[in-house]
Amino acid sequence: MERVFDLILRFRNLILFLLLQGISLYLIIQINTRHNIVFGELAQNLTSSFQESRGRVFAYFNLIDENDKLLYQIKEIRQEYLKVRDELSLYKNQLPLRLEYRLIPDSLLPSEEFKFIPAQVVNNSLDKSYNFLTINKGYLNGVRKGMGVISEEGVLGQVVSVTDNYAMAMSILNKNFKLSAKIYQENFFGSLSWSGGSPEYADLEYIPLHVNIKEGDTIVTSGFSSIFPEGFRVGIIEEFEEKSEDGFYKIRVKLNSRPGNAYHVYVLSNMHRAEIDSLEKRISTYQ
């Protein structure tokens, strides 16, 4: 304590000098705005540049930690990736049920038979017996007569008329529309049509009585036509009855797609359509 006191006594003039200069500076900065501003800026600059340099130095010393963290993150991501890849391959096996998966643009699935042309519905009818929908893609976009139209939810219809920029499709809610569909779980196929009435339901015919079906079974496209690929979801069995007179079920299907809500749709362009048609034409000459 005495030493401290001695020290203070020894440097009393210096301490006094610094104290007085400190008070003067304090007065200068506190009382005078101009000095205040300048000093504020100066102090800020000093502090920020100091902090910046300190940050750099600390960042350097933290590199090892950062590396560990990054390595850990890479490990996590890799594990996640493997998990997702496994899941994906699992889903791939259930592909017919995963419409969304099939809706990946063709550039990502180069071997796909079908090309998807995105379009928007510009006109749509629901209340008639023969309903149609108009889409904003036409001949110039590659849309051709006979192509299928789907939404993310399911089948919507088939193109019946094409202009340069627009196309008109026969809706699934059209009494003339026939769709080759099958019961996914049983792999038996029949013909799906709409008989008017509620836009939510359609009928599936020609499923033989020996097939074991139950309510809730999934109906998907059969893939027998070149219009829709196999496995697009159409709907589920709402109810059914056995019609013993002709040996078939009368199945009421709750449609998956809701044409009334459809806005973003895809036109399905079968890359092998011409080939299939020519082949079928050749066969028909023998009939």
């Binding site: 008070i23 003067s24 500076l25 007065l27 200068i28 101009r34 000095h35």
Partner: peptide
């Protein structure tokens, strides 16, 4: 400081700083 307050020629505190 007295000079600063009396004359107001410079910012208050400048006179005392320079004098010390």
């Amino acid at each position: 400081l007295s000079y600063d307050l009396l004359t107001q020629t410079a910012a208050t505190g400048v006179g005392s700083f320079a004098a010390v």
